[in-house]
Design a protein around this nucleic acid. Structure first.
Lengths: 152, 152
DNA sequence: GGTCGATAGATGCAAATGCATGTAAATCGG
DNA sequence: CCGATTTACATGCATTTGCATCTATCGACC
């Protein structure tokens, strides 16, 4: 392992590059699948994030933390989803500047439908690649990384 | 750990989601840094990939495997880089359809300059998040995942 | 209460992206 | 060797994206 004896900075860079490349490789396959014909990956991501929200309603700026999109792009993406009847928007009651977003019934249905296919596609790629123990470790490490990055 | 006792499919999905979220969180920070003012992340990625290529020349379709872009978008991205004098193109000698790409001197310089800042930014995020051993393990797991996905 | 800087979101506009398709060259099947 | 299929890349065009900027509201401070 070439990075083992090298500087901490270099190890960090190589680790990130490997993580990034893995993400690209997997994402490339997922995007090609039939699950994303009528919905871009970012649009699905928004539906998914909303589906995980306990209260149902989520602030648009909180959505923005989960998606790799600029504020303006997310604003318009949500606008498109609203026009397609997949989400609903309302002004935030406690903050006159804010907007709350939630899934409509149609949005829920679409998320579940695409989600099922998506999960199958993911499993088809990940299960043969890593043992269950390795997956758990990867899950732990990426979550630790994400939490640390989000905290600063 | 909720996924521990669940189905293999579910564990795989949670693992992927965690990897993806970590990637989004880190990438968001990196993009915000000063290293990417004059160059989009995809453009840097192309310069970086070329800088790692031993022969210097790389086929455009091979480049496409590394970057999360459609073929047409990459074609135009390379065209832009060529106009900016950062890369050079020539027809592939052994395949009349193909195009070879390599960095110009200016491209090399810019890649190195941005690369240095970029590596610093990465280290600032990754080093405090994970121990060296954890980074090595994350590197190993993501590389294993990438290799498996690429192999099919 | 009134002023000032910060924050949430929307919008004009130029640039980037993807899809469908076009062209040319390579490969396959006979 | 020839037609059919596939592959590599380019291009027209509609959509999406980001940057800069605008409006409105919030919060801090006096």
């Amino acid at each position: 392992m070439s990075a083992k004896t090298e500087s901490p900075v270099r190890l960090a860079a190589e680790t990130w590059e490997s993580l990034f490349r893995a993400q690209v490789a997997v994402m490339r396959r997922l995007q090609a699948g039939p699950a994303f014909k009528g919905l871009a990956i970012n649009e699905y991501d928004v539906l998914f994030t909303l589906s995980r929200c306990p209260s149902g309603w989520l602030r648009q700026n909180e959505l923005n933390d989960h998606v790799l999109l600029s504020q303006s792009s997310l604003s318009r993406l949500v606008e498109r989803l609203e026009k397609r009847g997949l989400v609903e928007r309302m002004p935030a009651p406690d903050d006159g500047r804010g907007v709350l977003v939630k899934l409509t019934e149609a949005g829920w249905e679409l998320q579940k439908q695409i989600g099922r296919e998506h999960v199958r596609d993911i499993a088809a790629l990940v299960v043969p690649a890593l043992t269950a123990a390795e997956q758990q470790e990867l899950l732990r490490l990426t979550e630790k990384l994400r939490a640390s990055v989000a905290a600063r």
